[in-house]
């Protein structure tokens, strides 16, 4: 469950960096910035449920 997501994040990171390099060489540098932004958003939506689950468990366990 968790190991998969860590490697998925790494994979997205590598993919985005390669594509950014590609776009930079072909002169479309602004597209590269947009691409890295979307990569970050994808990772955000992957990690968010885990963090949410952690904080909800904490809240219910310690009745904060």
């Amino acid at each position: 469950m968790s190991v998969g997501i860590i490697f998925k994040i790494a994979a997205v990171g590598i993919l985005v960096s390669v594509l950014c390099q590609l776009l930079k060489n072909s002169g479309r540098d602004d597209l590269g910035h947009l691409l890295s932004l979307t990569g970050l958003l994808v990772v955000l939506f992957w990690v968010l449920p885990y963090v949410l689950e952690l904080f909800e468990t904490m809240q219910s366990l310690f009745d904060l």
Partner: peptide, 28 residues
């Protein structure tokens, strides 16, 4: 991955921290 793309290192730390925290809390 910090050498390749520095912002993803923090995301990996956050994901692993969340998972380890969850495991610790279930133990707690």
């Amino acid at each position: 991955i910090k050498t390749i793309k520095s912002e993803y290192a923090l995301w990996i730390t956050l994901a692993a921290g969340a998972f380890l925290g969850l495991a610790a809390i279930l133990k707690l």
